[in-house]
Design a protein around this nucleic acid. Structure first.
Lengths: 241, 241
DNA sequence: TTCCCTATGTTCGGTACCCCGCATATGGGT
DNA sequence: ACCCATATGCGGGGTACCGAACATAGGGAA
């Protein structure tokens, strides 16, 4: 019997917005080297400091970049879905990063071996342009995460996290426990329980054992801090083609 | 009578480590377009969302990237000195960023008009390599700032901030009020007063009205959180030539 | 159906930091 | 030498979040 993951059929590469934005000739050059892979929930696409062999272009699903401290505490740095790619250090030149990349919402990706990515990047064409602009959008997200962590309450951060996730999913339901959300936000699970409870009481979301449904997105947008809009606007500006 | 800023003579461009690391031919190509400018304390090298015409390669002094919120609260995202440059969005493709860049410690820089930077970047040579690796180091710093903001106490963050600043200065004295440090760390001034007081009582630092001297750097390194070492190690790895 | 793992709900005390207000003192400018 | 803008010191009260411990309940597996 197929698992839930393999029950969802892979999408074509053009479901990834970076691949979709490539000129036809560039796309055709990459296509033979793209390999479809599943992104099962919880899988570490790469580990902190680990060597990377591929970049991953998600077509569905969400990948979180998170940092785990010596003490075991963790915090999400940024999040990527079908609008981007995982593995920027391969073209930035570092080969590895200090953060982990973990599948937060299962899905699929096309992966490209590092040498083909580098070859195409060094042509200096549209792919290079797209990857660098995406990287800048990621930088904005990281910056805003730093600011948000400093100044905003858990409830606002939860709203931000929900909206960023929703933007990368086709439905308005997330497959996620409060415990895992707490790990992402770097707070206690009870803090998430309390914030989620308030949002549910207000009729904005509904949750049950590992599932969260956003019922009233405009309502959530009213409670979120400015950080969400800053990140969203900048991503739209940079990735609009 | 000369101001304190102009009393410090500008250094040669090779005091900037990125410029120093360029192959001779590349360096000679840029040299005619480099213009020496002073970096006076508090000057905004660029504003949030503002158009940028130059990149700045500091030879001395420190520039902070910081985000100012609607409420007026602020937080430092990252810091750059003679090891890097200010204005990554010019080659990343975005033209602007959501953060401001403010001179935190006065000094000098060589600036390069955007069009020359882009032309050289698009050659795909060593400059491109260096700038991208520097950008990845900056990303590490931003990530770690996010994590540190979430999990660490003000005293540890102050230690991190002191060490990051010291790494970019020739002396062990900073020209900085507790109020300004508080703006950088995104905490209240009193929080900095308390933390600095503890460090001074322990004999690690000495301060007086706008000046902080680090007396016992190993002692500060003992109190800092892991974030400093992570950022430092990654910067060394990425920028070692 | 039943069982049991695990997700969620709740409480308690503790603490780090916030907000506000004001006292003190330093040191550059005149 | 003096002044005064400004940097630093200090307090009291409030709150958001933490840490730990435990109760409840949902829902998948056998």
């Amino acid at each position: 019997m197929p698992t839930r993951t393999s029950a969802i059929p892979p999408s074509p590469p053009t479901q990834n917005r970076l691949l979709a934005a490539l000129p036809e000739a560039d796309y055709q050059r990459l296509l033979p080297h793209l390999e479809s892979v599943a992104l099962p929930l919880g899988w570490a696409v790469y580990e902190s400091g680990g060597r990377m062999d591929h970049v991953y272009f998600p077509t569905d699903g969400i990948v979180s970049l998170l940092y785990v401290m010596e003490s075991g505490e963790s915090a999400e740095i940024a999040v990527t879905g079908p609008e981007g790619l995982v593995g920027i250090s391969l073209f930035m030149g570092g080969e590895s990063t200090t953060s982990r990349a973990v599948v937060q919402s299962e899905g699929h990706a096309y992966r490209l071996p590092a040498r083909f990515l580098r070859a195409e990047f060094e042509r200096g064409g549209q792919l290079q342009h797209l990857l660098l602009r995406f990287t800048q959008a990621l930088i904005t997200q990281m910056s805003q995460t730093a600011v948000c962590n400093r100044h905003h309450a858990v409830e606002q951060q939860l709203c931000r996290w929900l909206l960023l996730s929703l933007d990368r999913l086709p439905a308005n339901e997330l497959h996620m426990t409060q415990e895992l959300i707490a790990n992402m936000l770097g707070v206690r699970r009870e803090g998430v329980t309390e914030a989620a409870g308030k949002l549910q009481d207000a009729g904005l979301i509904h949750y049950r054992r590992g599932h969260i449904t956003v019922l009233d997105r405009p309502g959530v947008e009213k409670r979120v801090c400015e950080c969400y809009a800053v990140v969203k606007r900048e991503a739209d500006r940079l990735l609009m083609h």
